[in-house]
């Protein structure tokens, strides 16, 4: 079976659209999931620590 232009465009316009939107929704869910809030707050503040040694 040869893949012609129409097939590719058809695929891009259907599944291409869906998977990009699905990924975008996935990212938004991860970002705004309430339980992640604490994790993110910790992450953004912990880089400001003054200690400059690896943790053991």
């Amino acid at each position: 079976m040869g893949i012609d232009h129409e097939t590719l465009v058809g695929f891009a316009k259907s599944w291409g659209l869906f998977y990009l939107i699905a990924m975008a929704i996935g990212v938004l869910i991860y970002t705004f999931w309430p339980r992640n809030r604490k994790r993110f707050d910790r992450a953004k503040n912990s880089i400001l620590d003054k200690d400059d040694k690896p943790w053991r």
Partner: peptide, 27 residues
């Protein structure tokens, strides 16, 4: 995202926004 907060001694304004812009840029 590392040196600017570090130098300003303030955490990044919105960590969530930084995640969304990361995936926006990569997609």
């Amino acid at each position: 995202y590392y040196y600017l907060p570090k130098r300003a001694e303030r955490p990044i304004f919105s960590y969530r926004l930084s995640i969304i812009s990361f995936w926006g840029i990569t997609f």
